[in-house]
């Protein structure tokens, strides 16, 4: 179920050691998780994220809160108007980790329309893997997205730039420089034979998909390549076409999927 109450995590973990204020937003979310258990709505204090940035901020704030008693006290005192202090019990996991826990065979069993013949380049970006100690998988040799895509019946294309930065927030004030970073990743995926790119971060999605118009204007050789959220590929393979919301992607992946016999 969706958390009844939640707020924006702040998108980035505050790295400066004396910056406690910016940990409040993620800690507040973690408290909501405990409250949801208390209200009897869920059994376990686990929160699943689909976004690499939420995953990172929540997980790092949780770690800090549990391990730094001084900061914990400060955060508690600022949050005194809450029902009670956060108990440090919430567990933050990414949907990919949950799927791995359930088992890839189980995922494969749910597949109704295997993504056969579709060559997919998984793209992790930064925060799904880094910093070391806070990722969903080994930061240098990740396999988790590959395993999922294989369970969905797709062919995985392993690109060297799969965990290279897409340009992140530089898309705001340095959009051409950010576009160049994304261009290099997308071009590599195309050159290595991928039909589409799969990812798990809304900011990567914007830079690598929505910015393809800009990329095309800057780099004349760029032909464009569909980019899908990994959950959209799951929906497609599970036969939940409507839930995949492919009409919202830009560029539109449907013509290519139709060519591969994966779209009506």
């Amino acid at each position: 179920m969706e958390l009844p109450r939640w707020n924006c995590c702040g998108t980035v973990h505050a790295l400066a050691k004396d910056d406690v204020m910016h940990h409040l937003a993620p800690v507040r979310v973690l408290l909501r998780v405990e409250e949801t258990v208390e209200a009897g709505l869920v059994d376990e204090p686990r929160v699943v994220t689909l976004c690499a940035m939420c995953y990172n901020t929540l997980k790092r704030a949780n770690h800090l809160y549990r391990n730094d008693s001084d900061k914990r006290r400060v955060i508690e005192s600022i949050m005194e108007k809450e029902s009670r202090p956060y108990g440090g019990k919430a567990e933050v996991i990414h949907l990919l980790e949950l799927l791995k826990e359930l088992g890839w065979e189980k995922v494969a069993k749910r597949v109704e329309k295997p993504l056969e013949g579709l060559k997919i380049a998984p793209y992790y970006g930064c925060l799904l893997l880094r910093p070391r100690g806070f990722g969903v998988d080994d930061p240098e040799e990740p396999r988790i997205m590959e395993n999922l895509l294989e369970a969905l019946g797709a062919e995985v294309v392993d690109i060297p730039f799969k965990s290279r930065c897409c340009g992140a927030y530089h898309t705001v004030f340095m959009k051409e420089e950010a576009a160049e970073l994304s261009y290099k990743i997308l071009r590599q995926a195309s050159e290595m034979g991928a039909d589409v790119v799969a990812l798990s971060c809304p900011l990567c999605m914007f830079n690598m998909a929505d910015r393809q118009g800009l990329i095309g204007r800057l780099f004349r050789d760029f032909k464009g390549i569909p980019v899908l959220y990994f959950t959209q590929l799951m929906a497609l393979a599970f036969g939940l076409e409507e839930e995949a919301h492919l009409d919202e992607n830009n560029p539109d992946p449907r013509p290519l999927l139709r060519e591969r016999g994966l779209w009506r």
């Binding site: 924006c8 702040g10 998108t11 505050a14 004030f173 809304p202 900011l203 914007f206």
Partner: peptide
């Protein structure tokens, strides 16, 4: 930022950019 650019930028980009810069 011109309004058309602001409109196309997702919140996640604007929030992270402001947080960092």
């Amino acid at each position: 930022l011109p309004p058309e650019e602001l409109r196309e930028l997702p919140q996640i980009a604007l929030v992270s950019c402001q947080r960092k810069l």
